[in-house]
Design a protein around this nucleic acid. Structure first.
Lengths: 196, 196
DNA sequence: AATATAAACTAATGACATTAGTTTTGCAAG
DNA sequence: CTTGCAAAACTAATGTCATTAGTTTATATT
């Protein structure tokens, strides 16, 4: 069906992901990728529409992998335990795939359906795991933003070496999630008319 | 003291910061900067040791500006109000200076004293503002990590357009900080022997 | 006014991305 | 088995950058 059957788009994306994780996101170049695949860089244009599209595909791939990891982490669990498990999975994914995770957050294209969908699925996952706290329509969405901020901020700072202090990182994350959950509970019990 | 007195390092950094904020971090190139300054790119090497050093200087400048904004936001305030004010200032700085803020988090050089110092000062600021909660040595440091994660995560996602939902962003941040503070209080009152 | 020096310049090299146009090869149809 | 086509890979070429080397020029100090 295809001559010299060597490469296809998926192979490119996988190789690019390796490059991103091992060498850093700045080393994801068509030249470097071609070298890794034993091919000249113009050949890559048969499978991908330039560097920009490669980055978008990488972002989608990363989001899908992240989603898979998050889903797997919460099978059979619910409540606080699920929030903790999902949080650990998120941060652990970012640690194992620093480059891929980083591409995930750079939105290179507006209006890319696949990309938005992949992001939306992760959003749904977080919404579900927080659904048990009965925060209401609006409150739930604010809480989702909160948890996303926590997870991304922690993972990002950790990956960039932003936490200099000699203190166990796992403990820090566990405490942060505990604090978040406790805060949700306390705020709710302290509410009167739902205002503020 | 200097011939053709046009440029100096500080001018370069300021112009690069403008470029970063207006055009995005990817457009911070020596070629672009030189064009903006009406000069040929090799001339920049008289003031800066290449693109990498420019990025480092940009990061330091950004951290200093951020620190100034955070400090200004809490003069005369303390307690919860200070945490809220500082958080707003942080996120607002990131909004006003998206490119500069982004450079801040990319640690391009290991062991750069000025860079580490600038980061350390922000850390101290956060430590101080959380000091009133009497979290103890270790607990305080975990809390600092937590707040940093929240602030960076929120600012970063907001800047990247990561929050798609049509929901007031200021409310989201205020709630998140409230939740964090409430969580800290609740966790503390629920403690027995200080374990876990 | 003369000079030393720092700043700016031109020229050149090498890494990329990207485009155009050519060659090759695997598969399918005769 | 051969022949042809389409996709994949190639070479060649262009343009943008960063960076280095070496030259020119302006100005501050003498």
């Amino acid at each position: 069906m295809s001559p010299r059957a060597g490469l296809d788009t998926h192979t490119l994306v996988l190789a690019a992901a390796e490059l991103a994780d091992e060498q850093g996101i700045a080393e994801v170049t068509l030249a470097g990728l071609a070298a890794k695949l034993g091919v000249r860089s113009p050949s890559l244009y048969n499978h991908v529409n330039g560097l920009k599209e490669l980055r978008t595909l990488l972002a989608i791939h990363g989001l899908e992998q992240l989603q898979t990891a998050m889903e797997a982490s919460i099978v059979g669990i619910s409540g606080d335990a699920a929030v903790h498990a999902m949080s650990r999975a998120y941060v652990e994914f970012a640690r194992q795939h620093p480059g891929l995770y980083e591409t995930t957050l750079r939105a290179p294209e507006e209006g890319n359906t696949s990309l938005e969908e992949a992001g939306g699925q992760i959003l749904s996952l977080i919404i579900n795991v927080l659904a048990g706290y009965e925060l209401g329509e609006e409150g739930g969405l604010h809480a989702v933003r909160g948890l996303r901020s926590i997870l991304h901020g922690f993972a990002s700072l950790k990956n960039q070496g932003g936490f200099g202090m000699p203190l166990d990182l796992e403990v820090s994350l566990t405490r942060l999630i505990k604090t978040f959950i406790a805060g949700i509970r306390c705020m709710r019990s302290g509410e009167e008319s739902g205002k503020e």
